[in-house]
């Protein structure tokens, strides 16, 4: 078994999750309290990756990042950043693709907290940031965990977007899901099975931990 695709998969999932907590938290916070008219539009855009075929997203990103078009050329010339068939490109595509898996649990977690918690904290003189980190987030741990884990697990399960924007370059963009496809195409079923089984077990364990935690089973087991 070659570990490279597996390591690459987890590296991608970890970086995507970290990037999404930074991007998703302010976005979810804004969505949970805004009365802006553009809120439904933003919510729709955030949810689009849930229903859109990954190939559609991959296709547009491929076009956008391609050096033959304006954005890709600009990124290449000014930031020396090539996003097609590179790991950086994969990270950006994954962040967009997994956005709803982070934003939706956080947004519903924030909306489900009683508004008086936030108001009480403001009236005690606390800023919005202090209120978010000291009062709101500690009281929605299960939503936070759901967001983190679903994003991580969903990135592991990516295929279409990765194939479109990343291709199949060993060590750079060949993640486990692509490696499985590749091995099957070369009729190398044994290795395909090893990768598949590995992903199966890992995602099962990750999701099981979430359900055990959110259902309170872990606490029961400890006590």
């Amino acid at each position: 078994m070659i570990w490279e695709p597996i390591i690459l998969t987890f590296k991608l999932a970890l970086i995507t999750t970290l990037a999404l907590i930074v991007i998703g938290l302010p976005l979810a916070y804004w969505l949970s309290e805004t009365r802006s008219r553009i809120k439904p539009v933003v919510e729709t855009l955030v949810s689009m990756p849930l229903v859109l075929p990954p190939t559609v997203l991959g296709f547009y990103l491929l076009v956008a990042f391609s050096p033959s078009y304006a954005l890709g050329r600009w990124l290449d010339e000014h930031l020396n950043l090539q996003l097609v068939f590179t790991f950086e490109g994969l990270v950006i595509a994954s962040v967009i693709y997994s956005l709803p898996f982070m934003v939706q649990p956080l947004q519903s977690g924030l909306s489900n907290l009683p508004p008086s918690l936030k108001e009480a904290s403001y009236l005690l003189g606390k800023s919005k940031a202090t209120t978010l980190f000291r009062v709101l987030l500690p009281n929605m741990k299960s939503s936070l965990l759901t967001g983190l884990v679903l994003t991580f697990a969903h990135t592991i399960g990516e295929f279409g977007v990765v194939l479109m924007i990343g291709g199949n370059i060993p060590g750079r963009t060949k993640v486990a899901s692509i490696a499985i496809y590749d091995e099957v195409e070369s009729l190398n079923y044994g290795l395909a099975n090893t990768y598949s089984l590995f992903l199966f077990v890992v995602t099962f364990v990750i999701l099981l931990v979430v359900y055990l935690f959110n259902g309170g089973y872990l606490k029961k087991m400890v006590s």
């Binding site: 009683p114 008086s116 108001e119 009480a120 904290s121 009236l123 009062v135 500690p138 009281n139």
Partner: peptide, 11 residues
């Protein structure tokens, strides 16, 4: 401000 539901922080 003391709220009707007290709004104590559960954490």
């Amino acid at each position: 401000y003391v709220f009707q539901d007290y709004a104590l922080f559960p954490n």
